[in-house]
Write a protein that binds this DNA or RNA. Structure first.
Length: 934
RNA sequence: GGGCCUGUAGCUCAGGUGGUUAGAGCGCGCCCCUGAUAAGGGCGAGGUCGGAUGUUCGAGUCAUCCCAGGCCCA
């Protein structure tokens, strides 16, 4: 018994303190504290001093209570991009930002103060600022928890004084260059928040609208051959409140319109719309009395059903018969198509509403009511005048305010715009889009068509929490001060005090002393509108990319697909207008996060998964692995199943590292590493394969295909290392004398492989890679953190093993598979259990037979069996081509089981000093004891 | 309604320019080991490549249409 124990003591069994169980939720916060204490983010940059810079520019999220899974996906991907560039040798920093102005915070502050009340703008803005700061802090804590390396102590905030000054200055620049104009146009308007909204500030949701069919009699005096006063045109609308604002009926030039005899009298409508009209109203439609092309009806006059006015038929190519009557109710003050048509025909842009959406004029039935209140009263008016043909409800997608989630309307108001046609901004932008690398490539077309079709940009908002539009009007004559150099006088005030200066100082203080209007007066009134928040964030490249490690333009912007109309878009337009170029060279887009059934996450569905919950349950590294495992160019799904699968994958990778580390106990690379030429060929082959893996991973990192890296590394751990190489290596590592060169050869390979994998994985699982690094044997000049390392260079891993030898090892791996199958058959037949109980006989001729003879001594270890014999091909056939002729025979191994290495040998017992041990172990023991003596 | 995107085994992914019985890992089932042990190893069963038409000697790969889902817009 003591003898056995002593024998076991002569083995080199695995030994490490690297824990098998990760306990990430507990260990990660400690690691974060350590990185912070050691300023690792800064150390990484210092280590790349003098290296070429890679400029990533962070898109600023809106600071809210907690981050969502999509936010985490976004930030983690950004982190992976920046880190992978750093490991690839670039100096790559990450300056995080937040988009701090805007309505949600303003609304909350209002709520807290019980309405905007009489608070002066400066005090109000101070409150908003405090609120935003609070949320930024909360956000930052959560982002840090995800293991994101960034300049967290110096982020950029759109509410920073300097940033606010840049925004105001950018506005003046685009004003100076002639892009800005003041105009009256229909814009999205929220009557609850009493402000204009940008296209990017509306969201489409289901909404139930009234659906109204009404008729407009033809006005007397129509030319001969046209419908007469007994005929009425049919219109359909879901916005009855626009009846008072109607200024035309729009027809399509090439559609057929007919007058039909109906139970409601002779009616004019598109021929193709008759069925849906009849179905919706229950009106019986009889014979057709006449037919005209829409073009022929242009100019025909109609009477208003309840106002004393007439208006014309006009043409519009947006008219269809898909819905309604094929005749579109046209109110130029309340629709984009309507407005454009109105401009062509010289119609009035009539929008008699106040900011709350109340009618300022009109009949008593609706005057003073809000538009939504007025709907039923206007329908009542139609009914009373006999103009109502049908009425119902329609549930459809309708634009809503993304701040308050209530329906918005189009309303023509006086606003500030950036003209997309000014200085050919559109054409030049379209040109610049072609010079940007869009990933995936469909981004080019998407951005291109968006810019090709977009209207002018409404940049003004009637709010307080933002950057004021730096414009002054003469108090005496109302003229606008046009001298931009005088307007710029306000910028230093912004630099110093932030945009609050606009409200804290008098116009005369903000302007150069003695600034006079052309009319001679010197008293000024300031503009009260502020800029669209998309103008704020769209200016970020000018506020942040100011040189050094942050040159302009950025190498990359990386956001979700919604940013084609958001930040990618506003940044591009401002880049073109203010700097004459696109602010980015590459734009990478990720897709959406969905639940396990492929549905978007929403509170109402109750399927929201929070990053913080994942971190608490699994750890940030697993959340990061989730990001890394999926092809983010398509929608990514989150579920329990996916996370548990990732846990398994993680454990496998972790244990593979653990095995490597536990077999490097006492190994010092500087002292013990073997030169490639001294290594065993199997070990050299594995280093070649690792070099190949490193090369492929480097390419995948370059194309930001993180999921390929993850899968390749995982498969390598599972298939090549755990199931093959490490399994084969156990015998050599455990039973050979510690300093035996064959064992050192294995350790040399294992150390290089583990170190390579740690670096390759470092951008993905940042915590675990660092943990592994701590347990790795140190080499001279090793950095303190794995995140400072460079990716393994294939040429450093490769050992110069000739291609022909590699081919042979691959052939042997194929033979091994055949042997394993044969072993399994014997296991099922209960003839053997452990593979070491087997003796394998291989019969192969030809080239394969030659290879087997060449590697005969390696084969038992490779198959993990005790004995391998080579024999002539079955049936004496010459065995033409390689593996085709291979026959594997398995029988029980001969001899006795060695007590020490468990291999079977006929020579156990030959040595009297160690009678229970095989000849290999005798040699090992002599080597060990000899070394002890020496 | 329009534009764009996605749809390969239960899950996560591979499958240049169309060409043998569509691959991998995980999971699952069965088995082995007990010197990586709340580990490790082996074998095996899983797919009409969303559907339908075409083009072709031949299509997961090309075309058209349809279905489902997503993003954006009307």
């Amino acid at each position: 018994m003591p003898e056995i124990l002593k024998l076991k003591d002569t083995l080199n069994l695995p030994r490490t303190d690297f824990p098998m169980k990760a306990n990430l939720p507990q260990s990660e916060p400690r690691q974060l504290a350590e990185w912070e204490a050691q300023r690792t983010y800064e150390r990484v940059l210092e280590a790349r001093a003098g290296a070429p810079v890679y400029v990533f520019h962070d898109g600023p999220p809106y600071p809210t209570g907690h981050i969502h899974l999509g936010t985490a996906l976004n930030k983690i991907l950004k982190d992976m991009v920046v880190r992978s560039k750093s490991h690839a040798g670039f100096r790559a920093g990450f300056i995080p930002g937040w988009d701090c102005h805007g309505l949600p915070i303003e609304t909350q502050v209002e709520k807290e103060m019980g309405g905007r009340g009489s608070a002066d703008p400066v005090a109000f803005r101070k409150k908003c600022r405090a609120y935003a700061s609070k949320y930024v802090d909360a956000h930052r804590v959560q982002f840090k928890r995800l293991g994101i390396f960034a300049r967290w102590d110096q982020p950029y905030l759109t509410m920073d004084p300097h940033y606010e000054a840049v925004i105001a200055d950018t506005f003046l620049t685009v004003l100076e260059r002639g892009y800005v104009y003041r105009g009256r146009k229909p814009v999205y308007w929220c009557i609850y928040d009493r402000t204009a909204l940008a296209e990017a500030e509306v969201e489409y949701k289901d909404h139930t609208s009234p659906s109204v069919w009404a008729k407009y009699p033809v006005a007397p005096g129509a030319p001969a051959g046209m419908p007469g006063p007994d005929v009425a045109a049919v219109v359909w609308t879901t916005t009855p409140w626009t009846f008072p604002q109607i200024r035309a009926l729009a027809f399509h030039a090439t559609l057929d319109y007919g007058v039909f005899e109906t139970s409601a009298g002779p009616l004019l409508l598109a021929v193709g719309a008759v069925p849906q009209f009849a179905a919706a109203t229950g009106i019986t439609v009889g014979k057709e009395l006449g037919r005209w092309k829409g073009r022929a009806l242009e100019g025909l006059k109609f009477r208003h059903p309840f106002l004393d006015t007439t208006f014309p038929a006009v043409l519009g190519d947006y008219v269809t018969t898909a819905e309604g009557s094929g005749i579109v109710h046209t109110a130029p003050g309340h629709g984009v198509d309507d407005f454009n048509t109105g401009q062509r025909y010289g119609l009035e842009t009539y929008a008699p509403l106040d900011d709350d959406g109340r009618f300022l004029e009109g009949l008593p039935e609706y005057k003073g009511k809000t538009i939504f209140e007025a709907n039923p009263f206007i329908v009542g008016l139609l009914r009373a005048r006999g103009a109502l043909l049908g009425e119902g409800k329609l549930s459809h997608r309708y634009p809503h305010c993304w701040r308050c989630h209530r329906p918005v309307i189009y309303r023509a108001t006086e606003q500030w715009f950036i003209g997309i046609e000014k200085n050919d901004l559109r054409g030049r932008t379209l040109e610049a889009i072609r010079g940007v690398k869009w990933m995936p490539s469909w981004g080019l077309e998407r951005m291109h068509s968006m810019v090709a079709e977009r209207p002018d940009w409404c940049i003004s908002r009637q709010r307080y929490w933002g950057v004021p539009i730096v414009i002054f009007y003469c108090d005496a004559c109302g003229e606008r001060l046009e001298d931009v150099s005088k307007l710029r006088h306000a910028i230093p005030f912004f630099e110093k005090e932030g945009a609050d200066a606009w409200y804290a100082h008098s116009p005369e203080e903000l302007l150069p002393p003695g600034t006079k209007c052309r009319c001679g007066a010197a008293r000024w009134r300031r503009e009260t509108d502020i800029l669209d928040v998309w103008f704020d964030s769209g200016s970020s490249h000018m506020a942040v990319l100011t040189g050094g490690d942050s040159r302009w333009p950025a190498d990359m912007y990386l956001e979700g697909p919604d940013q084609y109309r958001g930040w990618f878009h506003s940044s591009l337009l401002l880049g073109m207008a203010a700097r004459g170029g696109a602010p980015y060279r590459e734009v990478l887009t990720h897709a959406w996060t969905l639940d396990e059934h492929g549905r978007p996450m929403s509170k109402s569905l109750g399927n929201v998964v929070l990053p913080s919950d994942i971190c608490d349950k699994y750890g940030a590294d697993l959340l990061r692995l989730w990001v890394a495992s999926q092809d983010y160019t398509a929608d990514v799904r989150m579920s329990e199943r996916v996370m548990s699968q990732l846990s398994d994958a993680y454990r496998k990778i972790r244990n593979t590292f653990r095995f490597a580390l536990s077999n490097l106990h006492g190994y010092d690379p500087a002292r013990d590493a073997l030169a490639p030429g001294e290594m065993l060929e199997l070990d050299r082959w594995m280093l070649e394969r690792t070099a190949d893996l490193a090369a492929r991973c480097a390419r995948w990192y370059e194309s930001y295909e993180f999921h390929r890296v993850f899968h390749a590394v995982h498969d390598y751990c599972v298939v090549d290392l755990s199931a093959f190489y490490f399994d084969v290596l156990k015998d050599r590592l455990y039973t050979f004398a510690p300093r035996n060169s064959a064992r050192r050869s294995a350790q040399t390979a294992v150390e290089k492989i583990a170190r390579a994998l740690a670096s390759l994985l470092a951008p993905l699982s940042v915590f675990t890679a660092e943990e592994v690094w701590k347990y790795m044997p140190r080499r001279p000049n090793d950095p303190a953190s794995v995140h400072i390392t460079l990716f393994p260079r294939p040429q450093e891993l490769a050992t110069g093993l000739p291609e022909a030898r590699i081919r042979k090892w691959e052939e042997l791996a194929g033979v091994r598979e055949a042997v394993l199958k044969a072993l399994e058959a014997k296991r099922i037949a209960k003839e053997i259990n452990a593979s070491l109980e087997a003796r394998v006989t291989l019969r192969a001729g030809g080239a394969l037979g030659g290879v087997l003879r060449e590697f005969e001594r390696e084969l038992p270890a490779l198959f993990i069996v005790s004995q391998v014999a080579l024999a002539a091909p079955a049936g004496g056939a010459p065995g033409g081509d390689g593996a085709g002729g291979l026959v594997v025979e398995v029988e029980r191994a001969r001899g006795a089981k060695c007590e020490r290495c468990w291999n079977y040998s006929e020579r156990v017992g030959e040595n009297s000093e160690w009678p229970t041990v095989c000849e290999r172990c005798v040699a090992a023991l002599q080597e060990i004891t000899g070394a002890r003596i020496a």
